[in-house]
Write a protein that binds this DNA or RNA. Structure first.
Lengths: 211, 211
DNA sequence: GCTATGAATTAGAAATTCTAAGTCACAAGG
DNA sequence: CCTTGTGACTTAGAATTTCTAATTCATAGC
């Protein structure tokens, strides 16, 4: 028995786009350009002969079909993700080494991640760093920064926001794409959200989204 | 929330290989060469840093890790498959147009698929054909033949066997890879098995597996 | 109107994946 | 113990897919 399967990478692009309702934001998560995501989704729609999104001038809306399709796909990727973590030693049982930007470190509790619930079991003591090259080289697993930087080929998402001299600023988590969403990253993100506040949508900064 | 995902196409290659316990047979299902499957799986093992198979001189054995990994993946692909069929009109609610080889047609019941349960709701009246080019061109959806032919880029699997002048011969189902495993194909295969006998393993014929 | 945003669309570059051909280790049979 | 056949492995290069970069377009917000 074989399986009838549409292009798997297209599914992944669709799933991310549907979660964000934006190709641009999905592209950040996936570490590619928005054009690439747009193409993948379009190709998927082509092979399924069905429209998954309604394209608006500024964003996306799921069609009825897309809405029906999304939950199973999300579930699917969750299963794969968990199952992979369960069998792959490459990641499980390892504390992530995180670099924290100079500015952000002033806002983190002293001795972070100590004192943040069970975060210390996921995250090692951080170093001060802001160069994505360290992530690429494997020297560190991820970066936490107060501004979006150019991170070609890395996942780069706004995960929380802090109040800094009268305005809200996003906290960005940069890591390899494979690392985004692993249990340690999830713990990190939810702890940050708890420490600071709810994540804000990433509007406003006119930054380019790629380097 | 993003997902930690290994290479999806590698997962697909692994899943098929594990089901067949053979790269060669998996390759047939996937419509590629065994070398390609071998590479995909090896790449997957590399990124997971784990061995999924024990390689024997003649075939494969799942490692403990591989066995633990397989069920979730199979489930995953089943979910995707069903979910896709549910939303894609390209395939659902359409009778497959099948070509049947000259020789095999002598063994099919008269008026097949009539009289074979609900098969007529999945399969249209067949034509006589044996040229995979018709499948490639989309003129027909699949072929049923009594011998393995070269079908570059198409799925080509032994799905049943019949007794013909003193020896068992396999029935091969050739179709586009996307079509293998859709509900109509499943109905076709299980009906054939029922009409004839249990499928035999595809040993013995010294045929090359690719064209 | 003017500016900014995000999606669509290209051509061409980059990366991945596949094939083809040959190697190897072993099993089976004489 | 030699010969034959099988299936996995390896590799270079080909083929295909995927991505980028640049541009275009429609529209929202000012």
């Amino acid at each position: 028995m074989s399986h009838r399967l549409p292009p798997l990478n297209g599914l992944r692009a669709f799933e991310a786009s549907a979660r964000h309702l934006s190709f641009k934001t999905a592209a950040r998560e996936l570490g590619v350009t928005p054009g690439a995501v747009s193409q993948q989704v379009k190709n998927l729609e082509g092979t399924l002969e069905v429209n998954l999104f309604r394209r608006l001038p500024r964003g996306l809306l799921l069609t009825e079909v897309g809405s029906a399709y999304l939950p199973d796909l999300s579930r699917t990727f969750r299963i794969i993700s968990k199952s992979t973590e369960a069998i792959a030693p490459a990641l499980s049982n390892r504390k992530l080494q995180i670099g924290v930007g100079e500015k952000l470190s002033q806002y983190l509790p002293a001795n972070w991640p100590k004192g943040c619930g069970d975060l210390p079991s996921h995250i090692a003591n951080p170093i001060k760093a802001s160069d994505p090259e360290l992530v690429r080289s494997g020297e560190i697993d991820g970066l936490l920064l107060l501004k979006r930087i150019h991170t070609h080929g890395l996942s780069n998402e706004a995960v929380a926001s802090i109040h800094d001299q009268g305005m809200d600023r996003n906290v960005f988590f940069v890591c390899s794409i494979g690392l985004a969403g692993c249990s340690q990253s999830r713990a990190l993100v939810s702890s940050l959200v708890h420490t600071f506040s709810e994540p804000k949508s990433d509007l406003g900064s006119g930054n380019r989204e790629r380097d």
